[in-house]
Structures are given as structure tokens and as C-alpha cells.
Design a protein around this nucleic acid. Structure first.
Lengths: 219, 219
DNA sequence: AATTTGAATAATGAATTCATAATACGGAAA
DNA sequence: TTTCCGTATTATGAATTCATTATTCAAATT
């Protein structure tokens, strides 16, 4: 029997707003009108405002006293900073994962890797990204460190608004796949140090790609 | 002329509650009675509840639906996880700092380092910790990465409740000072990679020390 | 015409009120 | 005495109300 777990309204609302930001219904810099959102969600201002405060402390929204909330703008510098930190966290996740990965885990990652390479060869961008992310999530989960997972997910959320899909050039893509070959090797060798180093470096390439995307401000 | 910057009430309240948790007036696992806190702060429940939600998303407080908020308990595992992540972040801060440190910065760190060694030789624990923290903050600030700083401060806040002062044994202390000698050398050589590695390892020692402290649960 | 002033309007911040779920307590039954 | 049940009390969740601060826009002044 499955437990029913009561969730607070403000968490629900926060999730919904996160979705709106992620999919681009709420754009960076855009003012968030409380009344309007209350009506679309069918809740009062209290839980909505609580949700906005949570999102503010998550770094997705900023709050100007007496002037309401807006979606934070992405700057090139801010995105670079975020990726740098994510790289460090991924590096740690790699080191820790190697201490915990079971043979079954490795097998699963190998399977995903092959799948991903297939998508690359057939130039199927969206599925490629999908599986790519699954691999990184696998490693992250295997780190067995929930603080790490929480931090990474927070940062990840902040840059999820960037859509790489169209801008991914062939050179970058090839490099990413090459990185992943090395990642798989390190995992199979359970070489935590090496896996960490590769993962730390791996994220660096995404940045130049992201920079050309539309929604980043040049401050 | 200095600008006056309006701060929201809920932020003020959040700061105050953070202080209460840090100094131990609110103990891990303790239930936070809204009414009582409202009276001590002289505010209504609305800003207080908003503050509690912020602290929840910061990981200092947990929120059980319909059953109120409590201060999160520190577990040995949780503290280890936190230190692991902080270590990774410190490592990154070292690498980045080496790219930005001016000669004046290095001179300042050298000064702090000598000061700290002096405190060590005279076995002045509290001042030692004070200066020690200043050094790490210097490096962190020099990273020029505000996302990193924000993340680190959040994690740091979570474990600030642990008081190491009394438990620091002579062996651990000597090792910590030795680490710091290596840190200074790496900084003077502007060797980001090495500084990063040292800092990543440096935090590991704190854990055993923390474990014997009183407020950690064995879950 | 451009800028400033001030009233009207709208939005936010915070307190209060109302509804609902959890806890505490007292009595009844085993 | 111990356990169980039902009521009273309390605390929390969320909506509403009130107060204050911004914003808008028209009129007045330079």
C-alpha cells in the first residue's frame, strides 16, 4: 500500500512557478504579478508569496522590497559561475560514486552510454540530451550524498532555462561524446580521482555553447 | 551619501532565527512554536512563517505539514556529506582564487597565516579559529564567484552549530597547521591545481573532531 | 514642449481571521 | 491499572483584510 504524503500548498505552487520559469512562460527579468498568478493557480496570495520566497532563496527569483518579484536574469558571468560550481560538484560526485557503484550500476551506465552514442550517430539531439542527463543523474545518485544532490539540483535548475538544443555545434558534440567515452572507462576502472577530473572538465564546454543562446544578458 | 536599503521583515526574522539556531538557543530536533517566536520578535505569524520557509529551503529547518517546523538534526552522515561538498567547493575556490589573487591579497593572507601560527604556538584556540576562518574567507572571496560563495556560506551555516573548540586534539591541530603551510606555499606559487587539491583534502580532518561533539545524532 | 506636482489607482507587506488538522485531556470500558 | 475513545483545546494552513508603498496619469508650472 502506498503512503499518502501531504504536501503543503506553497510547495506545490513553488513547483508550478519553477515549471513556468523553466519552460519560458516566465521570462528572465519579467515581473511576477501576484494577483495574476493567484488567479491562474486558484490560490490566495499567502501560499503564493511563501512560494516566491522559497524561489528567491533558491536563486531563481529576486525580490525587491515593495516592488515585487522578478525572474532573475541570466548573465554570462553568472552562468559561468554556476557551471564552475556544478563542475566541482560533478567532480565530487564522480569520486564518491566510484566508492559506491555496484556492478549492476556500472552495467546500467554502460547501457545508457551505448544508447547515447547511438543517438549521437543518428544525430538525434533531443533523445541524446535526455540520455546524457540520465547518465549524469546515475553518477550523482551513486554518490550517496544527499547534500551534494540537493546542491546540484538547485544549480541545475537555475540554468535549465537555457535551451542548448539548436545551438549545439558538431565539434562541441563530438568533444562531449569523447568525454563520455573517457567517463565510462573511468567508471569501469572505478577510478574515482580520474572520473572526478574528467567530470570537472566536462562541463566547461557547455558554456561557450550556452553563451550564444538567446536568453543570456550581457550585463 | 549612503543609500538606505529597505529590508523585508521576513529576512530580518530569518536572520534572527538563524542566530538562535547557531548559538544553540534553538536545539536540533526542537519544535519551533510559531506563537512564542512571534511574541519574542514582536511580529505577526505571516513574516515569521515566510522566514521559516526560507530556512527550510536552506536546510536549517524542516517542515512537517500540519505539524509545524523543527530545527533539523545533525547526523554523523549528514555532517560528513556536508563537509565533503564543502571540501569540493573549497577546492574550486582555491583554483579560481589563484587566477584572481593580487600581490596585495597574497600579502594579506601571508600576514593572517603568520598571525594564525602565532596563535597555534601559544595554544590560543579561539583566536586561532577566528583567523583560520578569515584565511578561508579570503580565498573564497578571491574566487570571484558569487554562486560559489553563496553555496559555501549556506553549507557553512548548517554546521556552524558544531562547536569544535574544546575537542580539538593536539595531533589534529598540528596537522591542520601543516596543511596551512602547504596552502600558503601553493598560494604564493599561484598553483591553483595544487591549492585546490590541498583544500579539498584539508576539510577531511574536521570530521572526526566534530563527531565527538555533543549535538550530533547517531541516527 | 518638457518637466514637475499631486491625486487616483494598483500592488505589495503584514496583521488578522477563519478553517482544519493535531494534540491533550478526561472518562469509560476491559 | 491500563487502554481506548471522544471531546476540548491548541496549533497550523490558508484566505482575507488592512496599511503602506509604488505607479500611473492628468494638470499645472516653467
Amino acid at each position: 500500500m502506498e503512503k499518502i504524503q501531504p504536501r503543503s500548498l506553497y510547495l506545490e505552487v513553488a513547483d508550478r512557478i519553477r515549471d513556468l520559469i523553466e519552460q519560458g512562460s516566465l521570462l528572465p527579468g519579467e515581473k511576477i504579478a501576484e494577483k495574476a498568478l493567484c488567479e491562474t493557480f486558484g490560490v490566495s496570495r499567502t501560499p503564493l508569496r511563501e512560494a516566491l520566497k522559497v524561489l528567491t532563496s533558491e536563486g531563481l527569483v529576486e525580490n525587491l522590497p515593495n516592488r515585487g518579484s522578478r525572474v532573475v536574469r541570466l548573465t554570462r558571468r553568472g552562468v559561468k559561475n554556476t557551471y564552475d560550481v556544478m563542475g566541482a560538484l560533478e567532480g565530487l560526485s564522480g569520486e564518491l560514486a566510484c566508492q559506491h557503484l555496484t556492478d549492476a550500476d556500472v552495467e546500467e551506465i554502460r547501457r545508457l552510454h551505448q544508447l547515447m552514442v547511438g543517438h549521437y550517430q543518428r544525430q538525434e539531439l533531443a533523445p541524446y540530451f535526455e540520455v546524457n542527463q540520465q547518465i549524469h543523474e546515475c553518477i550523482l545518485a551513486a554518490s550517496n550524498n544527499d547534500v551534494l544532490i540537493e546542491m546540484y539540483n538547485n544549480l541545475s535548475q537555475r540554468v535549465k532555462r537555457i535551451r542548448y538544443s539548436v545551438e549545439m555545434g558538431p565539434a562541441n558534440w563530438a568533444k562531449a561524446v569523447a568525454d563520455h567515452e573517457a567517463i565510462l572507462e573511468a567508471i569501469e576502472a572505478r577510478d574515482g580521482k580520474r572520473l572526478g577530473d574528467i567530470l570537472r572538465a566536462h562541463l566547461g564546454h557547455k558554456l561557450e555553447v550556452a553563451a550564444v543562446s538567446g536568453i543570456i544578458d550581457e550585463e
